[in-house]
Amino acid sequence: MQELFNIFIKGIFIENMIFAYFLGMCSYLAVSRTVKTSAGLGIAVVFVLGITVPVDYLINKYLLLPGALSWVSPSFASIDLSFLSFIIFIAVIASMVQLVEMVIEKFSPTLYTSLGIFLPLIAVNCAILGGSLFMQERDYLNVTEATMFGLGSGVGWYLAIVAIAAIREKIRYSNVPAPLRGLGITFIITGLMGIAFMSFMGIKL
């Protein structure tokens, strides 16, 4: 239990998707103009990461890894399909996003309208594919650990985008040097926030 909690906290603070790995930067920079829309995108990312990481974990473990197919028949034990992982992961993500979109539309129309255009865009958000690839690289023990990692990274991404959106809303009233306005200052603020987040790196969990 404690192990699971550690993975979750690690995903949020120590291995934050934005500040430690720069994943999902494109939508992070493009959608962070107001807090409201960025919170909507953040929730959608938490949702999709929480679903795709465990699904990709199961696919990786039972279909792709060397010898993973031996549960079908012992004669498949020598097959190694891991070179297919990129194409399978991206297909899973694209179809999962589609599926999540349909489920939300059916069961919670209010959430669906508030997420709006962001849901389909998530399919090409690097944070999602990054989550699956990190999961593959780190060899989590079971599917619960992978789920906690997915949720933790999602929450970390959510925190980061809401924080930068709040800062950008305020910075509109300050006198930033003209060539830095907009994109430039956002990069520098993200860098400073990243330095602040580095202080979590000393924590051993």
Partner: peptide, 25 residues
């Protein structure tokens, strides 16, 4: 450290935009 990459990009943008004023937002 990773954050310095972001700050370096910020500085590159700064230099580029002060040379080409029409790019300023």
């Amino acid at each position: 450290l990773p954050p310095m990459a972001l700050i370096t990009v910020g500085i590159i943008i700064w230099v580029q935009r002060s040379r080409n004023r029409e790019l300023i937002e």
